[in-house]
Simulated assay, not measured.
Amino acid sequence: MLATPGTLPPAAQDARWAYETKQDGQRAVLYLPGDGTLVLRARSGEDITAAYPELRPLGAALGRVPAVLDGEVLALDDQGRADFQLLQSRMGLAHAPGRAARMAARVPVHLILFDVPFLEEPLFTVAYRERRARLESLALNGPYWSTPGAVVGHGAEALRATREHGLEGVVCKRLDSGYEPGVRSRAWLKIRNRHAEDVIVGGWLPGRGRLTGLPGAVLVGQRSADGRLRYVGGVGTGWSEPERAELGALLRAAEAGVCPFDPVPPVANAHWVLPRLVGEVDYSTRTRAGLLRQPSWLRLRPDLAPQESAADLPEQPA
């Protein structure tokens, strides 16, 4: 069952919804036949059990009760927050069990459990509030897995708390909703916290197909404390067609033969420009290297000079 992007339910309906923290990890469904084993599958259906050997003991923890559990595999940073970049070092190792075991010792994962579509019998038509109670009654809290609580009502406060703690957002789940496998349902709503910052355009990548002749993405940076223009990522969404055409004209007028970023990013087929255009983008989080995750263009900022677009970026080797 998948969540639909949306907004908080109306205040008058707040008490009809539960709110869970949205986690930045790999969605997974666990199949536990009740014999102490488990099979872990990704959204694609791929068997990823071998990629996460530290989760195997969960099969024995549940005992002889057959179940299907829904959750998210996370890698946590030193502050206990989900770090997708860390998790990427663990993903894709389902066919390399030896390497997976070594990585498990270095970057252990943690499984967050949030639903139980099957527990001795199918629970698809059982309301979320009852499924949640049955999941919590299993007391599945161990060294590499846990069942965090959900808040009923108080959606605005829950969303604000995730924002204040630097978390990705919330998932709103209607208390009377069933479990709809394979459906992106309006009974589950996901709300991401987004951040907006000013950036300096230092280059662009040509578009393809219907975007031939136009910028497919702009390459953007921010000034570090030492004055260098540091690359923070590529932005390829957020424009209307007229806005993309206008931006293309501005970029062609600023064409330059030298990369303005220091250090030069490893981006193939880039067209470099004089770093004089300032724009505003929004994004979900930053990687540990300071790159923007899921950035989207908001607007040009002709009212700002390039030197005004500075940021507190992580230190990198010169």
Rank of each mutant, 00 (worst) to 15 (best):
residue 293 R to F: 00
residue 131 R to S: 05
residue 164 E to F: 00
residue 79 Q to P: 01
residue 315 E to Y: 05
residue 6 G to A: 08
residue 256 A to H: 10
residue 43 R to D: 13
residue 62 L to A: 09
residue 200 I to G: 03
residue 304 L to N: 00
residue 266 P to K: 13
residue 217 A to S: 15
residue 95 H to D: 12
residue 270 A to M: 12
residue 223 R to P: 03
residue 251 L to Y: 13
residue 116 V to Y: 08
residue 189 L to W: 08
residue 174 R to A: 07
residue 77 D to L: 05
residue 254 A to W: 03
residue 175 L to M: 14
residue 209 G to H: 04
residue 176 D to F: 07
residue 139 A to Y: 02
residue 300 L to F: 07
residue 168 E to Y: 05
residue 252 R to N: 10
residue 124 F to E: 09
residue 77 D to G: 09
residue 102 R to P: 00
residue 31 Y to G: 11
residue 66 P to S: 10
residue 287 T to S: 15
residue 270 A to G: 15
residue 134 R to W: 01
residue 9 P to I: 02
residue 115 D to W: 06
residue 161 A to R: 11
residue 280 E to P: 02
residue 66 P to E: 07
residue 246 E to F: 04
residue 90 R to L: 10
residue 186 R to Y: 01
residue 300 L to A: 15
residue 211 L to C: 04
residue 27 R to D: 04
residue 69 L to T: 02
residue 281 V to W: 02
residue 193 N to I: 14
residue 7 T to V: 11
residue 267 V to M: 02
residue 252 R to L: 14
residue 308 E to L: 05
residue 224 S to L: 03
residue 120 E to W: 01
residue 284 S to I: 12
residue 53 P to M: 01
residue 45 G to C: 08
residue 141 N to E: 12
residue 67 A to G: 04
residue 106 R to I: 12
residue 159 L to D: 04
residue 1 M to T: 06
residue 207 G to F: 07
residue 88 Q to I: 04
residue 81 R to K: 15
residue 317 P to C: 01
residue 70 D to F: 07
residue 221 G to F: 14
residue 61 A to R: 03
residue 27 R to V: 06
residue 108 P to Q: 04
residue 137 S to F: 00
residue 222 Q to V: 09
residue 141 N to I: 01
residue 123 L to Y: 05
residue 22 K to Q: 09
residue 113 L to F: 14
residue 75 A to E: 08
residue 170 V to E: 06
residue 7 T to G: 07
residue 293 R to C: 14
residue 127 A to H: 02
residue 305 A to D: 13
residue 132 R to Y: 04
residue 234 G to L: 01
residue 5 P to I: 06
residue 232 V to E: 07
residue 32 L to N: 01
residue 267 V to P: 06
residue 216 G to H: 13
residue 113 L to Q: 12
residue 191 I to M: 09
residue 212 T to V: 12
residue 123 L to A: 10
